[in-house]
C-alpha cells in the first residue's frame, strides 16, 4: 500500500513538468539553491579555462581564452598524470585491502565464538574516537622503524584496518539468519567457502557501497601522504595539487592551473560514484 503510493508519487514527479503558476516561487528557489551549491564547481570549471589575467579580473566569469591549455600543461609539465596514477594505485589497494580485512574481522566477530569477543569489538569501535592526526606521529615512527617510509606500504598499510567498515559489515552479517550458517555447517561448507560463496554475494550491495566510500576517502587523503612520502614522483594527487600552488610568476598563483588540476582530480571519484550509485544508496538504505 505504502509502496504503491510511493510509486505513484514517483511517477507523478517524473511525468513531464507542467508549470503551475502557484509553484513558480518553489521552482525558482530550487534552481537558485542548486546553482548555489554547484557554484564552486562551476567557477572551478570556468577558471580552469582562463588565463592568469582573466582570473584576477574578478568580474569575468565567462569561459576563458585559454581553452584546454591549462589541462594539457597540468598533465604534461606538472606531472599530474603521475600523481593521479599513484593515487589510483593507492586507492584501489586501500579499498581492496580494507574490505578484505574488514570482511574477515566481521566474519570472526559474528560467526565465531571466542573469549572477550565483545571486548574485542568495542576495542575496534574505540579506535573511531581517535581522530587521525592524533595517530600520525606514532604511526610515522612505526613506519620509520619498519623502514616503510616513502613506500607504497606506508601509503596503504595504515588504512587497511577500519572500525567503520568492520562495524557496518558486522551489523549486516548479524542480519543474516542463523539457519543459513547452520545449513552450511551441516553440509560441510568450510568457513572460507561460506564467506566467498554465501556472505560476499549476499553482501554485494554493502561491500560495493563500502568500496565507493573507501575509494573516495583514500583518493582524498592529503596529510598522511604528505608526511610519509618524500619523493615527489611517488606523491598522490591531493599533495600534487599543493605543488601546483607554488607554480606561477611574480607571486601570482596560477589559479587556472590549479582549477584544471582540481577538475581532473575530481573525475575518478565522480566516475566511481556514478558507476556504483545504486549499491551505494542501498548501503545507506536510501534506495527505492
Amino acid at each position: 500500500m505504502a509502496a504503491e503510493t510511493r510509486r505513484e508519487a514517483v511517477s507523478e514527479a517524473s511525468s513531464p513538468t507542467r508549470l503551475v503558476p502557484g509553484q513558480l516561487p518553489v521552482h525558482v528557489g530550487l534552481v537558485v539553491s542548486i546553482l548555489l551549491m554547484a557554484s564552486p564547481l562551476l567557477l572551478a570549471i570556468v577558471m580552469s579555462t582562463q588565463t592568469v589575467p582573466e582570473i584576477y579580473d574578478i568580474g569575468d566569469i565567462t569561459p576563458g581564452s585559454d581553452g584546454l591549455a591549462n589541462y594539457v600543461s597540468v598533465l604534461t609539465t606538472y606531472n599530474m598524470l603521475t600523481y593521479m596514477a599513484n593515487s589510483l594505485i593507492m586507492s584501489v589497494l586501500v579499498t581492496v585491502g580494507k574490505i578484505a580485512v574488514s570482511l574477515l574481522a566481521a566474519v570472526a566477530l559474528v560467526f565465531y565464538d571466542f573469549r572477550f569477543k565483545n571486548g574485542v569489538f568495542f576495542l575496534i569501535l574505540f579506535t573511531l574516537m581517535f581522530p587521525v592526526p592524533v595517530r600520525i606521529v606514532p604511526l610515522y615512527e612505526l613506519m620509520a622503524t619498519l623502514g616503510w617510509s616513502n613506500t607504497l606500504l606506508a601509503l596503504t598499510g595504515p588504512y587497511l584496518a577500519s572500525a567503520t567498515a568492520v562495524f557496518l559489515l558486522r551489523q549486516h552479517f548479524m542480519s543474516i539468519p542463523e539457519s543459513l550458517v547452520e545449513a552450511a555447517r551441516v553440509d560441510g561448507v568450510g568457513p572460507l567457502e561460506f564467506l566467498w560463496r554465501v556472505l560476499v554475494p549476499m553482501s554485494r550491495g554493502m561491500i560495493t557501497g563500502l568500496g565507493v566510500i573507501t575509494f573516495i576517502y583514500s583518493w582524498n587523503q592529503y596529510l598522511w601522504p604528505l608526511i610519509v612520502v618524500s619523493d615527489q614522483n611517488k606523491q598522490v594527487v591531493q599533495v600534487g595539487m599543493k605543488y601546483l600552488q607554488s607554480v606561477g610568476n611574480a607571486g601570482q598563483t596560477d589559479w587556472g592551473l590549479i582549477m584544471a588540476g582540481a577538475v581532473l582530480t575530481l573525475l575518478p571519484p565522480l566516475a566511481v560514484l556514478i558507476a556504483f550509485r545504486n549499491p551505494l544508496l542501498e548501503t545507506f538504505g536510501l534506495a527505492e
Partner: peptide
C-alpha cells in the same frame, strides 16, 4: 536438516541451493 525458515541462500537459484555444498559433503 530442514529448517523452519527454509534457510535457502537468497542469491542462488533453487538448483544451486540444492547442489551447494554437495561436492564438499
Amino acid at each position: 536438516m530442514v529448517f523452519q525458515n527454509y534457510a535457502l541462500y537468497p542469491h542462488m537459484t533453487a538448483r544451486e541451493n540444492m547442489t551447494f555444498g554437495l561436492d564438499a559433503a
